[in-house]
Amino acid sequence: MSFEDSVARYFAARLHDAHDLQVTRLYRIPGGASRETWSVDVRWLEGTGKERKQGFIVRRDPEASLVDSDRRVEFDFYRSFADSAVPVPRPLYLETDPTWLERPFFVMERIDGCESQFQAVLDPGFAPHRAGLARRMYEILADIAATPIDALPAAESADVPAPDACWRRELDYWEGVIDKHELEPQPIARAGLRWLRRNPPPPPQRVSVVHGDYRVGNFLYRGEHIAGIVDWEMAHFGDPLEDLAWSFMPAWQWARDGMAGGIVAPDDAVRIWEERSGLGVDPAALRWWSTFSCVKAQGIWLTGAREFADGRAQDIMLAFTSYWLINAQDRFLLQALRRV
């Protein structure tokens, strides 16, 4: 059975009172190296004979990826923000049964008419929208940080650390990733890890939802409007400064001009975030999380290199990130450590 036939069989079984269901378009969306992302157009007849059409997104587990993450946790973070001030695509179904599409997956409503690629913000024609888009980006991040966590669906599937354990938990995890996946010794990453352990940050003012990969490229936008925050596969509870620092990382300064995501100076982003969230940014803590971000990113690139080298994945993106980003990330880490 072809993948398209399998998708049609799944939706025919899953959608209520659906007859004569057809998949009219199915294509893979680029990016998203942690899961395969498929766009699906479905047409069917209801029991009354009325024709229905809808677009869906299917996020299927890959054979191997840059990030080893739990799809249930990701799905629950989408559920946590459905119908809230933080825009997300509506999550619909989580399927762990591999008989449908060979691997587990989940389904979301598709948001149409938006851009997601970071390249578009660099287009000179987009320049008038950059400041407005940046404001919305950091207002939404502030809303994520300010959201009370106790009643969120994600609190059922993800651990909530004590404030003073946030930094250590993340650092332990990503050091473990580097231990497991490095193909050769990483003297710069190891120096970064030692610095991080010698200089721990203060506890956060509050434990918050941390998206884990918050940056230009991981939301759907149209002009200055953000319609959906996506790619929650590294979401967890922790210090909200982690997201802020991650969004500033040089790897996402696409134009290499110091502008985070190509759209905003970090100081301006901090001001928007502080005003909206009511939280303060301790410069020493932000520096710690910025340095940590470089180590975490290196853990991601090393994971991709390992998966490709060991033959568990053939995705050319993994080879590309190995060649292009591992050495660049070492240089960014040297900058964060003030060694350049």
């Binding site: 003297p187 710069i188 070492d330 060694r339």
Partner: peptide, 8 residues
């Protein structure tokens, strides 16, 4: 270490 990044 800095020189190693230049080489690569």
């Amino acid at each position: 270490l800095l020189e190693s990044t230049r080489r690569r």
